[in-house]
Design a protein around this nucleic acid. Sequence first.
DNA 1: CGGTTGTTGGGACAAATGTCCTTTTTTGAG
DNA 2: CTCAAAAAAGGACATTTGTCCCAACAACCG
Lengths: 189, 189
Amino acid sequence: MYRTNEYFYDFMERLHSSGAAKDHVSLKAYRQGDYLLQQNSPLARVLIIREGIAKCIINEENGKDFILAFLGTGQLLGELEVLRNTRCLNNVQALTSLVAYAVSVPYFRHIVETDKAFNAMLLQELANRLAITSTRASLQQLYTVEHGLRNLLRLLQQQHMTLSKEDMAAYLGITVRSLNRALKTIGEE
Amino acid sequence: MYRTNEYFYDFMERLHSSGAAKDHVSLKAYRQGDYLLQQNSPLARVLIIREGIAKCIINEENGKDFILAFLGTGQLLGELEVLRNTRCLNNVQALTSLVAYAVSVPYFRHIVETDKAFNAMLLQELANRLAITSTRASLQQLYTVEHGLRNLLRLLQQQHMTLSKEDMAAYLGITVRSLNRALKTIGEE
DNA sequence: CGGTTGTTGGGACAAATGTCCTTTTTTGAG
DNA sequence: CTCAAAAAAGGACATTTGTCCCAACAACCG
């Protein structure tokens, strides 16, 4: 349900506690509901979550929201923007209170270019996200809401996680009304 | 509509014509409709399209298809599988007759690890695909079919491309019947 | 030419989903 | 504790989409 990455966490933990790049690495704290990134704004720094969970949301012009993913410890934020040299693709909001390492963009670039292991892990992480995003898009387009909801509920249970109805609906790309109907159908079995 | 990548094309063109890695690089030709990759099969080689267009399709267990993307000259196939060490995520089928460079997996890994420019371009390409896939998923979930169809038609026109009704429907994640209805509504304006 | 097959277009009905509201329940601030 | 605000549940109706067909038309092979 929410992704984590031990490697990036350990990497940042070491980098930060070693004090080797003080000017380029800092810690930031967020309260529940705070925005870590804002859609269409320029990226300030790359963030790596130390603890807490964040949600990536695309806000569409028709007022609807779509949740792309939930990110936990060790996950990167803003790496797409650095690689593509663009403004933020989506909002990222703290689902719980949250602490993240903040790395300056030039220093992040430097790590990617010089650290082989980090580079390899970044490639792998992007590949995984792409695979997940693609299969999820396909599933949600081609199966019923009920099917998608069952998946979601299973994932939430596995990770001892709960979401508001609104968030569940945004993850499934449906309205809360439809979510409620599907929940009822599933419950009545 | 269909993605291309000049850098990868030039890179392979040079590599192949130089004959520097004969054992690891070859050319393969496909007829329209041939499969370049088969979902769930182990990956034989990484492919880079020299000419022609391919479609990436996920085949779901309920018999429905979802088209993830169309790939043209210079696009990579199988790189996700190499990075993730998995079987093929999806089918890839030639939409036109097609010629591709085929690179052995170890040699592809070698390039990624040793060629800085190639590595950077791969990161960028993955980032772009992820951004495109994410925004498309959001659009298709949160807007009407008609809206998605208008986008698709515009893209097709821009690239002087045509698709069968079946392919259009699979791209939009809907049935052909619904596609026909939406086409009629748009036409009646 | 005739027949077969694949593609396209659409009718009729069923099922799924959205929209708009209202009511109930829960939560949190003062 | 009390009240206001937010979250959850669901009724009624409209709209969208899918399912199951069948008919028309084009493409192709013997």
